[in-house]
């Protein structure tokens, strides 16, 4: 039987689960919406994976994403890694000579600069989520179209309509104004895509030495309008890898595989975890004026972990 490795990326908008084989090829992938319930979604995903026959030979696991601590407690992973490294590893696996990675997710957008397979520079959006997936989601709702149709709609447009992209709030009022003037919806969507790309390049990508081959990944890479806008702005081809939406999880799986091989065993708890009961209980510690929000995770009434406190009183 083949050996498989599990990778999990718990992000703000999506939770992704992949299974790779010894050759780092994706044999199974799932893209789920987190909907603010990471544990439930994770359990659902693992449950579905468990029911697909033949994948029970899992010898390592890794996790990443903003919910990585939680995921690692629930499923028992060999490595917990930040998204930057995970994405870089997955991209290098897909295209070893990649030199720039653009990743736009739900709340984060990042640029990673690589040279000869080594990360030499990276940047993430600072305090503002203007150029990210959530922004597009919101505008799609406002325009009354499904986010899946967003990109194709932008490609239909041939006009240049400028929409202010510096801030999501500015963009929204600018967009409403253009709508009221009677502009075509496709043009507005194209304008939005360009605004987002401009925002990304002037905020996150500022001062970075962007050279080809350029990879574009993360949930937003599904949007062909954005890809097109990037190509226009950068004057270079932008590649979207086959598994663009789960690249973080692939990176985590590769890292988990290498770590479990190094240590010779795996901490992975097995696919049966979807049958167990997890409860998260949050409370405010009143020990001092920091009022830390402490979280407690229970597995079948047994406390797995507590975290969130500054002083270490509850952590274990």
């Amino acid at each position: 039987m083949d050996n498989y490795y599990l990778g999990v990326d718990v992000g703000s908008v999506s939770t992704n689960i992949v299974l790779i084989n010894e050759n780092n090829e994706v044999v199974y992938k799932e893209y789920l919406r987190t909907q603010g319930k990471p544990i439930d979604i994770l359990k659902d995903g693992i449950g579905r994976l468990a029911k697909e026959a033949g994948y029970n030979n899992i010898h390592g696991a890794g996790c990443t994403g903003s919910g990585r601590q939680l995921a690692s407690i629930v499923i028992g992973t060999d490595i917990v890694k930040n998204e930057i490294t995970a994405h870089a590893i997955a991209s290098l696996n897909a295209k070893p000579d990649v030199r720039t990675i653009i990743e736009i997710g739900g709340q984060d957008s990042k640029i990673i600069i690589l040279r000869d397979g080594i990360t030499v520079d990276f940047a993430m959006n600072t305090v503002c989520a203007a150029g990210t997936g959530s922004f597009l989601d919101r505008q799609a709702i406002r325009l009354g179209i499904a986010i899946e149709e967003f990109g194709d709609s932008a490609l239909k447009s041939k006009n240049n309509l400028r929409i202010a992209g510096r801030c999501a709030v500015f963009a929204e009022s600018d967009m409403i104004h253009k709508q009221q003037l009677g502009h075509n919806q496709d043009d507005i969507i194209r304008g939005l895509c360009q605004a987002l790309v401009r925002n990304f390049l002037s905020n996150v990508g500022k001062g970075k030495d962007i050279r080809g081959p350029i990879m574009f990944q993360g949930g937003v890479a599904a949007n062909r309008g954005i890809k097109e806008a990037f190509q226009e702005e950068l004057g270079e081809e932008v590649l979207v890898p086959e598994n663009f939406d789960v690249m973080g999880a692939i990176g985590a799986a590769i890292l988990g595989k290498e770590r479990s091989r190094d240590i010779g065993y795996s901490n992975f708890k097995g696919l049966d975890i979807y049958k167990r009961d997890y409860a998260v209980n949050g409370f405010e510690c009143e020990g001092c004026s920091n009022l830390c929000e402490v979280l407690e995770i229970k597995e079948d009434n047994k406390t797995l972990a507590r975290y969130g406190d500054k002083c270490g009183k509850w952590t274990y």
């Binding site: 930057i84 984060d108 990360t119 030499v120 990276f122 993430m124």
Partner: peptide
Amino acid sequence: FNTRLEAYVDL
């Protein structure tokens, strides 16, 4: 914040 710090240290 943690993600950025970890990634920076990796780098």
